[in-house]
Amino acid sequence: MIEVRNLTKRYGKFIANNNLSLTVKPGELTVLLGPNGAGKSTLIKCICGLLRFEGAITINGYDNRSKEAKQQLGYIPEMPALYPMLTVQEHMEFIARAYQLKDWKPQASQLLRRFELDDKQNKLGKELSKGMQQKVSICCAALTNPRAVIFDEPLVGLDPHAIRELKSLIAELKKDGCAMIVSTHMIESVEENWDTTCIMTGGRIARACRREDLDSGSDLEDLYFSITEGSGEEKA
């Protein structure tokens, strides 16, 4: 479970996140939507423990800055940040050692094959395209068998095969009880799997909605534009 309570993030006098609260239950996929500058990336970085903030965030009951929380959380950033002088295989080994994983090599090999990186294992991080770097990030996050995962624009730069495999992986994680947040502008990419959505504008959650509460005949795109281009905001 991912739980955010009364989160506020300030940069000087500018408030990037203003008193946000949300809960993602095990096996649920929450889609984070909003225009550029709405505060989505700031929220994600706070959840991942990369920024200081006011309020409280827990991962399966543990403070998000704790070792226990970090061991259960996977993060795929919008811009992959690989070590330039480590190979693909060394990235997998680095993650395995950092998380003290046992018998990880078969799973690592399976993930690399799945995302068509098995023939790139000796390539350095700096030698990979952005799409390949993104696939390495996905493999590293999945290797730890996380109980919560944050995806920030995960489809950007991926080829059609990788997009299909990532969607399949998300469905598998969901079935396995993983709590997930996906931030994306590609609304159609999450239409079939989402459970809840939080639509952000101006650093606030303007609307939180469960799939079953969506008006008959409407879809996620309709909801998004009704909030971001409608006559007013509805606070969650």
Rank of each mutant, 00 (worst) to 15 (best):
I2D: 02
E3V: 09
V4C: 12
R5I: 12
N6H: 12
N6Y: 06
L7Y: 01
K9V: 15
Y11G: 11
I15V: 15
A16K: 05
A16E: 03
N17I: 10
L20A: 12
V24K: 02
V31L: 02
L32C: 07
L32G: 06
P35C: 05
C48Y: 03
L50C: 12
L51D: 10
L51W: 03
G55T: 06
G55V: 05
I59P: 02
Y62V: 08
Y62D: 02
D63C: 09
D63L: 13
N64G: 04
A69Y: 03
K70M: 12
Y75C: 14
Y75P: 10
P77W: 01
P77Y: 00
M79V: 15
L82N: 04
Y83A: 13
Y83K: 12
M85V: 09
Q89M: 15
E93H: 13
F94M: 11
A96G: 08
R97N: 05
A98R: 06
Y99M: 05
Q100P: 04
L101W: 01
L101K: 06
L101E: 05
D103L: 06
W104T: 05
S109P: 00
S109G: 08
Q110C: 08
R114G: 11
R114Q: 12
D118P: 03
D119T: 15
D119K: 15
D119A: 15
K120G: 05
N122R: 15
N122T: 15
L124I: 08
G125Y: 00
K126C: 10
L128C: 08
K130A: 11
G131Q: 03
M132Q: 14
M132W: 06
Q134S: 10
S137P: 09
S137D: 07
C139M: 12
C140A: 15
A141L: 10
T144V: 15
P146N: 11
R147E: 06
R147T: 07
I150C: 08
F151S: 10
F151W: 10
L158A: 12
L158H: 11
D159W: 04
A162L: 05
A162H: 04
I163V: 15
I163S: 14
R164H: 11
R164L: 10
E165W: 04
K167N: 12
I170E: 08
E172A: 10
K174R: 07
G177I: 06
A179Q: 00
M180G: 00
I181Y: 00
I181M: 00
V182T: 08
V182M: 03
S183Q: 01
T184P: 00
M186E: 11
M186W: 03
I187C: 05
E188W: 03
S189V: 03
S189L: 04
E191Y: 02
N193R: 11
N193T: 14
I199R: 00
I199C: 02
M200W: 01
T201Y: 09
G203P: 00
I205S: 04
R211A: 13
E212S: 12
L214F: 14
D215R: 15
S216E: 15
L220Q: 05
D222W: 01
F225K: 11
F225A: 11
I227S: 01
T228N: 06
E229C: 13
G230D: 07
E233D: 10
E234M: 09
E234L: 13
E234S: 11
